[in-house]
Amino acid sequence: MRALRIILVVAVILGGLFVIADRVAVGFAEDEAANRIRTTEGLASTPDVSIEGFPFLTQALGGELDDVKIGIKDYEASTSGTNDTVSTIRIDDLNAEMHGVVFSGSYSTATATTATGTASITYAELLKAAKSETTEVTDGVTAQVVGLSDGGNGKIKVTVEATVLGTKVPEPISVLSSVSVEGDTVKVHADTLPNLGVDLAENTVRSVTDFEQKIDQLPGGIQLDKVVAAKGGVDISVKGSDIRLVG
Rank of each mutant, 00 (worst) to 15 (best):
I37P: 05
A33W: 13
T135H: 10
I91C: 04
D191I: 11
G105A: 04
F18T: 02
E136T: 15
A33K: 03
I89A: 07
I243P: 05
I236C: 02
S241T: 14
V86E: 13
G221V: 01
A33V: 06
R90M: 10
A44C: 07
R23L: 14
N195H: 03
V208A: 03
D66C: 00
E76H: 14
D199Q: 11
V24P: 01
L200M: 08
T138V: 14
H99I: 10
R5F: 14
A229V: 00
A29E: 04
G117N: 02
G247Q: 11
S237I: 04
F28S: 15
V19E: 02
V246K: 05
V26N: 05
D67Y: 13
S78T: 12
L165D: 15
T167A: 12
L43N: 12
G63W: 05
G247D: 13
P194L: 08
V160H: 05
Q59M: 05
G247L: 03
V141T: 13
F18V: 10
L196K: 09
D48R: 03
V9P: 05
S207Y: 02
G117H: 05
L127Y: 09
I91Y: 01
S120H: 00
G220K: 15
T79M: 03
G247I: 01
L8P: 10
R2N: 12
G247N: 11
A44Q: 15
P47C: 06
K231G: 14
K239G: 11
P172D: 00
D31W: 07
L245E: 08
A190K: 12
G105H: 00
L193E: 02
A124N: 14
E202Y: 01
S78N: 12
L14R: 07
Y123R: 08
I222F: 08
G147I: 02
G15K: 15
Q223P: 00
G42S: 14
S177Y: 02
G151V: 06
R90S: 09
H99T: 11
V208Q: 09
H189L: 13
L61D: 10
V188P: 11
K69I: 07
V208K: 13
T209R: 04
I72F: 07
G81T: 09
S80A: 12
A119H: 01
T58R: 00
V198H: 05
D67R: 09
M1L: 10
A162N: 04
K128P: 03
G166M: 06
S80F: 06
A190D: 00
D67T: 10
A44V: 12
L148A: 04
S149N: 07
E202Q: 11
G63K: 08
S45R: 15
L8F: 10
R38H: 13
A60C: 01
E41A: 06
G16Q: 10
V145K: 06
